[in-house]
Design a protein around this nucleic acid. Structure first.
Lengths: 132, 132
DNA sequence: ATTTCAATGGATATATACATCCATTGAGGT
DNA sequence: ACCTCAATGGATGTATATATCCATTGAAAT
């Protein structure tokens, strides 16, 4: 449902959102989250390319939440790391390609409910809400 | 949420549940489901070991739903292929080990709702309900 | 008995997510 | 100018899920 990498990203954003005006080094974020440093660097880089985070190199450098990023729904983060399909699900629980309201599988309605709850959750929750 | 292998298994059971009194060869099940034959054989074997399916070797052999298997909730199938944790989830959407009602994460309640819907779905739906 | 059929089981291959390593770049301090 | 710091980026390694291959076993037909 949410990949480990996407959860890492959300955890990172939570840390940064808690200190919106500081610049944190990768090492610090790694220490705070427990994410392996090298892997974390890839994640931070993707967040930067996506415009959610700003970075500065060298002495005094580090990462910082981009100004308006706090108001973005965490759905945006899931799209980046797990793709659109994982954020806007309209799949069948049994993987049937032809499952729809006309020809529903045994779990069609219940699964639609589950998906809906998930969608609601990831659109209602904003990055800023994650801050510890 | 549900691994591809578990979905395969459910699809297989759906096929067998539709013809409870016939014995179907692996090849036939593969043709009906689109699951790669060799991989399918592993799945059918696990289902047999778990007592959900009966098999017979050699000429006229094949697979058949075990007598009472139709009444088993599909949760039982998920436990076999994806493990207990995936069926009885009490995890945090953000992966926080210490997330509970005392110290909830930002999505605690919504996620609990999603999990609940899922649990309800997989316990309410029986193997026999999957039959086409 | 022999042949044929189909499940069983073990070993191996592929794809993908997760993780590590190291050389390069750019920015600040001296 | 030079040194140090920390992000960037490319190449490589590891684990797991998914998939394939083939030799063996058991059962029915002849």
């Amino acid at each position: 449902m949410i990949s480990r990498t996407a959860r890492y990203a959300l955890h990172v954003l939570a840390i940064l959102a808690a200190r919106p005006h500081e610049r944190l080094r990768g090492e610090e974020v790694a220490a705070a989250t427990g994410i392996p440093v090298n892997y974390l660097s890839k994640i931070l880089n993707q967040l930067r390319k996506a415009g959610l985070v700003e970075s500065r190199k060298g002495w005094g450098g580090g990462f910082q939440l981009q100004a308006e990023a706090g108001q973005r729904p965490i759905r945006d983060v899931l799209v980046i790391f797990d793709g659109l399909e994982s954020a806007d699900r309209h799949d069948c629980a049994l993987g049937r390609p032809a499952c729809d309201s006309e020809h529903p599988c045994a779990m069609h309605d219940e699964w639609a409910g589950v998906r809906d709850g998930f969608t609601r959750m990831i659109t209602a929750t904003k990055v800023a809400d994650l801050a510890d």
